Computed example of a mutant assay.
Amino acid sequence: GDGVPAAAKVVRAERSGRDVFVLGAANVGKSMFIGAFLEASYGGRPKRLPISSQTPGTTLAPVAIDAFSGGSQLYDTPGVHLAHRLPAQLLPAELRVVLPRGRMRPYTPTVVDAAGLAGSTYFWGGLVRADVVKAPRAMRLSFCAFNMRVHHVLRTADADAEYAESVGVHWTPPLSSESAKQLGALVKRKTVTLELRPMRQAADIAISGLGWISVGCLPTRDASRAGGRG
């Protein structure tokens, strides 16, 4: 990937005969990085490398690799599970739903209200809520993740009731009402105000461990300012 040769050069320059440990959150690609690092450093990959998988927890203990001369080693390590990442809070069956499989296909919902998205709410499965407080008619949202359905509530005033009725049943994951109760109520994390310009992507709003919501605007004169709350 981009940047791996530069990273490999820095590691070789800074390690000074010491062991090198690759650390990071679960399922971010540490094992794949090691393979790319070795290829960038030595022009090829050894026959035996740490196993990489879509499933977090594949690396269960530090794995030593003879990557350097002089006795020091390169270590692949188990992923760190971070509480703010959604996958860390899901049950195994729910985790399998959101893990990357195949090619990501961003979803841009059709706008059915003549007034646009303002005053409406989107739920991403039963895990994410985005309220559109104010927006020009031309604003569009694209949801970028794997295997997560988007549900549109036309009036934010109705969102709480529809969520309570649907989460864990029609809106999944979570995969059951009991699991939804264990996860607890959705908590407001951020209010975002963006400058929108025609045919420009304004921002990507990241949902840690799940994906992101891309905010953009169609060509029109009324693209001015939009506020989103989620």
Rank of each mutant, 00 (worst) to 15 (best):
G3W: 06
F123V: 00
A138R: 07
R101V: 01
A138M: 03
E94R: 01
V63L: 10
G29N: 08
A64I: 09
L38W: 10
L141S: 14
G57C: 02
A83M: 10
M104T: 12
A159Q: 04
F123W: 06
A40M: 10
V192Q: 13
G3C: 10
K47P: 00
S177K: 14
D66Y: 07
L91T: 14
R197K: 14
R101A: 15
A164D: 00
S177D: 12
G216D: 08
G211T: 03
A161S: 15
R45T: 14
V20W: 05
V22Q: 05
S208A: 14
L196E: 07
D160C: 06
S69M: 12
R105S: 15
A7E: 07
G102Q: 08
H152K: 00
A185S: 09
P173M: 10
T55H: 13
G29P: 07
A6T: 09
L90N: 05
A88R: 04
Y163R: 03
E94W: 04
A185H: 00
I65E: 11
V132T: 02
A185E: 09
V167L: 12
L82R: 12
S179R: 14
T191I: 08
R229L: 03
A180G: 07
S53E: 11
R101M: 12
A203I: 03
E94S: 08
A25W: 08
F123E: 00
A203N: 08
L82P: 03
K30I: 04
G125E: 01
K134Q: 15
G29Q: 02
V20F: 07
P100Y: 06
H170A: 11
P219F: 06
L218N: 09
V133Q: 12
F123S: 07
R225V: 06
C144D: 08
V133E: 14
L194V: 15
P106Y: 03
P50V: 05
Y107S: 01
K9A: 15
S41M: 13
R96V: 03
C144V: 13
D204G: 01
I34Q: 13
A206M: 01
D113A: 11
T191V: 07
D66E: 15
R129G: 08
T108Y: 01
G209V: 06
L141I: 06
I51F: 12
L60D: 10
G35F: 11
L60Y: 05
A206C: 12
F37M: 06
T172A: 09
F146C: 15
R149C: 05
